[in-house]
Computed example of a mutant assay.
Amino acid sequence: MVESFDELTKPNMSFKGFTFVRQASLAQTKKGDPFYHLTLAKKSTHIPAKVWSDQLNGREDEAQQTLKEGNLIYIEGDTSTYNDSLQMTVRFFRTAKEDEVNLEDFLETPPEPIQELTVEFERYLEEIKDPLIQTISTAIYKKYKSHFVKYPAAVSNHHSFTGGLLYHSVCMIRLGKDICKHYPSVNQDFIIAGIALHDAAKVMEYTNFSAPSYSLPGEFIGHISMSSMLVDREVQIITKERGQPLSSYEHEAVYQLQHCILSHHGKQEWGSPVEPKTLEAHLIHLIDMIDSRVNMIDRGLDQAPEGEFTKVFPLGKLFKPHSK
């Protein structure tokens, strides 16, 4: 019997204890029987789980309230494998009482302290030399700071944990600044500001920071377009305060910043309204790919056995070498 959820690493293990409902959906078997598909979690451990109809009979209303995204629950269950991946069958469930567990003990966080990452991110914003670009970037960050430092960078896959958006942004800026050292033609202002704002509207795209799903504007518009819209709103505020429009040079700078945001997915079929047309836009897309891919692989292989191939969604089978 395993005492802690994050110790579940292989099939044929039994567990009684508390876990966090990261994702939940009600579905039906081919026979029409209802069942719940869950993603249960503690820190970096995420396991798909099923609650079959025999556990739901007569408890439908209770299940609807208990098996809900963002809830802490007590479960009893067993692990197995399905399609070469670990999963769990839940034999019993109930809501966790407030005095039994602490939510913070179950949320995955960045490998570096959020406070230190926040200070580093704010220092990068101060390094932006163009006054208009710095004003826009800083104003947007300050308006959404409380959410920006807590929200994930994705619902699943890369940086999908509390503080993931901040950590992803800081790691990308670190890479971007290193590239600027090697290539003098790169405009560091657009690298820093473009990265700082490229995912800024994820604080609106997602419903919350702990067990996020897509919000109404997230589904209808998406974070890429909304992040560009945030820049446009700041420009309107600035021009109103000035009492005059931007200069032609300032207009070009704003367009370049918005372009870095709008093109950071690289291709239209990958969700970008436009494809990169500046050096900085190309680099931000590539840096985003590098950082997200490294995070996906690191987390996917974190608990994998050494010297074996492990399926890491959505990248397929990956090999984890033996450590020295």
Results as ranks from 00 to 15, higher is better:
78 D>P: 00
280 E>N: 10
17 G>Q: 07
243 G>C: 13
179 I>Q: 08
60 E>F: 03
119 V>S: 07
48 P>Y: 08
193 A>R: 05
293 R>S: 12
50 K>E: 01
174 R>C: 08
25 S>Y: 05
76 E>A: 02
308 E>M: 10
39 T>A: 08
26 L>S: 01
214 Y>I: 06
51 V>L: 04
74 Y>Q: 02
256 Q>R: 15
245 P>G: 12
140 I>L: 02
29 T>K: 02
54 D>P: 00
208 N>R: 14
322 H>W: 11
311 K>M: 12
224 I>Q: 04
133 I>P: 11
295 N>R: 01
82 Y>A: 06
79 T>H: 02
137 S>P: 01
298 D>A: 10
167 Y>D: 08
221 I>H: 06
241 E>Y: 07
231 V>W: 01
168 H>L: 05
11 P>W: 03
323 S>W: 02
190 F>I: 13
47 I>N: 12
170 V>Q: 02
180 C>N: 06
159 H>Q: 00
310 T>Y: 11
250 E>V: 10
181 K>W: 03
46 H>T: 08
77 G>E: 00
231 V>K: 08
173 I>E: 08
71 N>R: 05
80 S>F: 10
155 V>H: 00
4 S>R: 15
108 E>N: 04
213 S>P: 05
77 G>H: 00
230 L>R: 04
99 D>L: 13
239 T>C: 10
12 N>T: 04
297 I>D: 03
132 L>A: 11
157 N>M: 01
289 M>C: 06
223 H>Y: 04
147 H>I: 01
180 C>R: 14
314 P>I: 07
194 G>R: 12
305 P>Y: 06
253 A>I: 08
